[in-house]
Write a protein that binds this DNA or RNA. Structure first.
Lengths: 185, 185
DNA sequence: TGTGTATAGTTTAGATCCTAACTTTAGCTT
DNA sequence: AAGCTAAAGTTAGGATCTAAACTATACACA
C-alpha cells in the first residue's frame, strides 16, 4: 500500500479532455452526467491514495485501517466477530481470517474464542490499535478539512444533502436484469 | 468480479448512525465534513458494484472494461503501449502484461511489436473489443441517468461544478509530510 | 440420547496484483 | 564501431483476495 503505482503522477487526461473524448466516441452521452460521474470517480480514487499515504506513514495499511474503523464504530468494548467484520467490509470470511492474523501479529487486535459459544470468535481492539485509529483519524480529518476548505457553508450543505440523496437511491433501489435502477417507493 | 462479497446486502449501519458513532468516538469531528466524505465513499463503492454487475453480464470484468475505456478514449486507431496503459490505469507494467494476456486470449485486443521501434509493443482494440465497450457504455450511462434522475438541472450543475473544484484541489495540491494539502497557487 | 442441520470460522487452491530482477532494443559518447 | 545508459516489457516470487471444501460447535427434534 505504501508505494502503489496509483500514487504516481499518472499522465491522465484532464477531466475536460476526457469528457470531450467521450462525446466524440459516444454521441448519446449527457456531458453533465458524465462530468459528475467522472469527477466523483476520480476524486474518490485520489482520496484513497491520500488516505493510503497517511496510513502508511503510521505503519499500517488502508486494509488494517478499515478494520480498526469498524471496531471503533461498533462502540466499547470494541469487539466483533470475524464474520460480522467481513460483512461490514465486503470481504469473504477467508480474507478476514488472514487479515486478522496479520493484525494480531502486529498487536492491533486480539483474537479469542467466545467461551459462551465456542463456535464464535471475538476480535477485540487493543489499546495500541485504538491509539493507531485515533492517529489515523486525526490525519484523515485534517486532510478532509483541507479538501473542503474552499467550499462555503451553503455549498457544503448542498453537497452533503445531494450526495446523501444519491446514496439513498443506490442503496434502496434494486437493479433489474439490465442494471437499471427501479424505484421501490 | 461477478459475485463479489461486496455485492451482498452488507449489514452496514445507516449513514446517520455511522456519523453519530464517529461523533461519539472522536469529538473533534465536523459532522458536515464527515457526511460529505462518508456519502462520497459509500456512493462510489455502490456504483462500482453496479458497474461490476453490468460488465459481468456482458462477459467482461471491470478490469477489462477499464482497459477498453482507455483505448477508446485514446481515439482511432485505438492503439496504446502497455506502459502507457499501465500509467493511465494506475497499475504496474507487470500487471498490465498479464491483463493484456487475458484480453488477447478473449479477443478484445491484439498485441504486436512495433516494427519501427522493436522495444515497443502496440495494444490495439479489436472490433469485438470496441463493440463490448459500446455495450458496456450504454449500460453504464443508463444506470447513471437513473442514478441522477431525481436531481434538478440546477442541482446537477452545482454538483458537477463543486466536485470538479474538489478534484482540481487534490490533483493540483501537493500533500506535505503529514498528508495535509498545501495550495500551489 | 442420538442424529440431522445450520452456523462460524479456517484451510486450501487458484486468480490478480506488486516488487524486483532480467532481457531486449535504442541512442549516446568516445 | 564498442560500450554505456536509459527505456519498454516480461518473468519470477511473494502478498492478498475469492471460491469452495472442511472442521467444530450448537440446537432442534425424534
Amino acid at each position: 500500500m505504501a508505494d502503489n503505482p496509483a500514487d504516481a503522477a499518472d499522465a491522465e487526461p484532464t477531466l475536460e479532455e476526457q469528457i470531450a473524448a467521450y462525446q466524440r466516441e459516444f454521441q448519446d452521452l449527457d456531458p453533465q452526467v458524465e462530468q459528475i460521474v467522472s469527477a466523483l470517480g476520480r476524486l474518490n480514487r485520489r482520496m484513497n491514495v491520500a488516505y493510503g499515504r497517511q496510513t502508511a506513514s503510521l505503519g499500517i495499511t488502508n486494509a488494517e485501517w478499515e478494520v480498526l474503523k469498524a471496531l471503533v464504530l461498533s462502540g466499547a468494548p470494541y469487539r466483533m466477530g470475524p464474520g460480522d467484520l467481513a460483512k461490514r467490509l465486503g470481504l469473504t470470511p477467508a480474507a478476514m481470517t488472514h487479515r486478522i492474523d496479520r493484525m494480531v501479529a502486529e498487536g492491533l487486535v486480539t483474537r479469542d474464542r467466545d467461551e459462551s459459544n465456542r463456535v464464535r470468535v471475538i476480535v477485540e481492539l487493543t489499546t495500541e490499535g485504538r491509539a493507531k485509529w485515533l492517529e489515523a483519524m486525526r490525519a484523515a480529518s485534517g486532510f478532509e478539512e483541507d479538501l473542503l476548505q474552499d467550499l462555503s457553508p451553503e455549498e457544503r450543505g448542498v453537497l452533503g444533502e445531494v450526495l446523501t440523496r444519491l446514496l439513498r437511491r443506490v442503496e434502496d433501489a434494486q437493479p433489474d436484469a439490465g442494471g437499471r435502477l427501479t424505484d421501490l417507493t
